[in-house]
Design a protein around this nucleic acid. Structure first.
Ligand SMILES: [Mn+2]
Ligand SMILES: [Mn+2]
Ligand SMILES: [Zn+2]
Ligand SMILES: [Zn+2]
Lengths: 148, 148
DNA sequence: CGTTCATCAACAACGATTGCTAACAAGCAA
DNA sequence: TTGCTTGTTAGCAATCGTTGTTGATGAACG
């Protein structure tokens, strides 16, 4: 079972409960995240939002995404693709990252053997484990047969 | 057996073979990388270099680190710690990243079970697998006992 | 020694993100 | 409804890490 980002209605309640106001801009962001199958950057969310509300600033999008991440309703990923990616899937999972187009795909597989051996952790306390498989997605592999 | 960055002498030969000149600045960078136990950022390398050669510009450091990375003699890591880190250990391995101080520690352990199941890779071709354990190093765990 | 290339300084510029602030508008009370 | 209060927004400046540009200088290599 996958723990996804809450529905726009639930996020609305949550924001009100935190004393935050629920604006049309925020509601649009809630909706976009809830419907998103990808791992959008702030820019990408902004591009979506401005299709409905052309005047929303990128600043506002960052603000709301940060608020959601701070509440734990959204996961911020830094995968070395330039911009941070926001993940509406809250359950811990891993990722395939395409070096060609930057596409991020979920890998919902548990690797129970992956942990730091007690003899090697030297006092380090692990709070999260991220596995990133880098390579090329089907589309990018087809586009560049041999050499770039 | 660990495949480390080549010695200053070897890198000197390599640069000459590529038609690149070997300057005191570059030699200092070669030496620093060869002696480094950490995963320095370009800034950190620059700070070291300027202890010997105070006039070396950060631009030159970036240039040389990029040259080395392009030759495959140095690995550039993006671990979400702000600046890129340069890794003198060339053998594939994994990392512990401290969320407190940004320290990066090697984990030279092989996890043979970590791979993308054939039923799930959907045409994705994996070229590298990175495992990052995030958490707190001993020093940072001690510094922040309960709450920040 | 002469050619070539690297370096330097001093910038500007970049992309991603955050800080600042004046103007605005949502929420609430009367 | 009206008006007040306060959170929110848009717009812009600024930040950080990194790269591009310039032209003058100097060093490396053959
Ligand atoms: Mn994901
Ligand atoms: Mn390493
Ligand atoms: Zn791709
Ligand atoms: Zn630490």
């Amino acid at each position: 079972m996958v723990d996804d980002v809450k529905s726009p209605a639930e996020l609305t309640d949550l924001f009100r409960a935190q004393g935050l106001k629920v604006t049309p801009q925020r509601q649009a962001i809630f909706r976009i995240l809830h419907e998103s199958e990808v791992h959008p950057s702030a820019e990408a969310v902004h591009a979506e939002v401005t299709r409905e509300l052309p005047m929303v600033s990128l600043r506002t999008v960052y603000q709301t995404l940060n608020d959601l991440a701070a509440m734990g309703e959204l996961v911020q990923l830094d995968l070395g693709t330039g911009a941070a990616r926001f993940d509406p899937t809250l359950t811990p999972h891993h990722h395939l990252v395409c070096d060609g187009c930057g596409r991020v795909t979920d890998l919902e597989v548990d690797f129970p053997d992956v942990s730091v051996p007690a003899t090697l952790h030297r006092g380090f306390t692990v709070s999260s484990t991220q596995i990133v498989f880098r390579g090329r997605c089907d589309a990018c592999a087809a586009a560049v047969p041999v050499h770039p």
